[in-house]
Design a protein around this nucleic acid. Structure first.
Lengths: 184, 184
DNA sequence: TTTGGTATTATTACTTGCTTATAAAAATAG
DNA sequence: CTATTTTTATAAGCAAGTAATAATACCAAA
């Protein structure tokens, strides 16, 4: 009986901390109606660090993630680049990128990978996207690895015509034609 | 002379903390070759909170930002929604969204606002983007406020045809036609 | 019923990274 | 040289812990 209670409590502890990780042991003890010591033993068993460590970890992790998402000039990892001609990037679909309910990747991530690859591939110091023609062929799910290939089809004046095709492991999932204009 | 030294030290302190905000007073004292007490007086004068508060603040802020950027179902603030018919969202262009050099908003943010609005507006429990036709008319810069308006033009079976037009304060900057397929 | 092991709670000493308050020393300006 | 500012030192206290040890409580099986 006691063992079952313990298991349940520890599950509840994990869940609670998952939802609100900023709680102290004291608050957790009040929530689960046990002593602070019990909470500490549970944390020890479950390998959950103390509040301050948790906060610190979150701050560090969130910072790097923010950088990756918000300020990285290329979404996805650039693995091949022939400037002015073609490029390849890969992007792993992580939990942040999918819709909660369906686990389907949100469209703008797939778009972002393609668009930033297109931007990277054209041989210009700065450029903006003018027109895009896009087709999402099948939906992409959590855990898949997307490989985007970009090709500069032609260049006319300051305009670049870039095609991007994105595949998962087995098939083509996305296709886009961009017309990019270089500035300067 | 001393006053100048103090000013300089406090500037250096601010800069150091800006770059590496995870330093303790002790480490800062060693870095600036003064006593820990001096660092504390400086922090007091400059209104800089202690390490733990800084970390906590970063964790909280980064978390909300991450949520906003990565897992918010709508990029931009939804200010009007007539389900199945139309919707409006606004998005302020913040420093994270622009390219370092040019301060021009990266295309995928504008796309993301439009796409997530289109998703929000269609009256379906879950949907994926099938095809998009996009035109970036002029480039968007740091500080501008984007207003996206979506309209469901027609519905055929499980397919929705949604048009989105985005304006800044003065003119239309972006236009997209999406064909979304609802799932269930 | 007693014995034994797990689970829980309590107690105490110690840690980090501070705050607050007070005082002393050093540096500098006038 | 004195008054003021700046810097350093000292001591007490706090939050949220860890680590170690001991004392109960509980339940289960011999």
């Amino acid at each position: 009986m006691a063992r079952i209670q313990k298991k349940i409590r520890q599950e509840r502890l994990k869940e609670k901390l998952h939802n609100s990780p900023f709680l102290t042991d004291e608050e957790l003890a009040a929530f689960l109606v046990v002593s602070v010591q019990t909470i500490r033993l549970d944390r020890l068993e479950l390998g959950i660090p103390e509040l301050r460590e948790r906060i610190k970890f979150m701050a560090e992790e969130a910072q790097t993630k923010l950088k990756a998402i918000a300020s990285g000039d290329v979404i996805g990892e650039l693995i091949d680049l022939d400037l002015g001609k073609s490029g390849i990037s890969i992007l792993a679909v992580t939990p942040e990128m999918v819709l909660e309910k369906t686990k389907v990747a949100r469209a703008h991530y797939i778009y972002a990978q393609a668009n930033s690859l297109a931007l990277a591939v054209i041989d210009a110091p700065a450029a903006v996207t003018g027109v895009a023609n896009i087709k999402y062929k099948i939906s992409v799910h959590l855990g898949e690895k997307l490989v985007a290939k970009a090709e500069v089809m032609k260049k006319r004046g300051n305009k670049y015509f870039v095609w991007v095709k994105t595949r998962n492991e087995t098939q083509e999932v996305f296709r886009a034609k961009f017309i990019m204009a270089s500035l300067d």
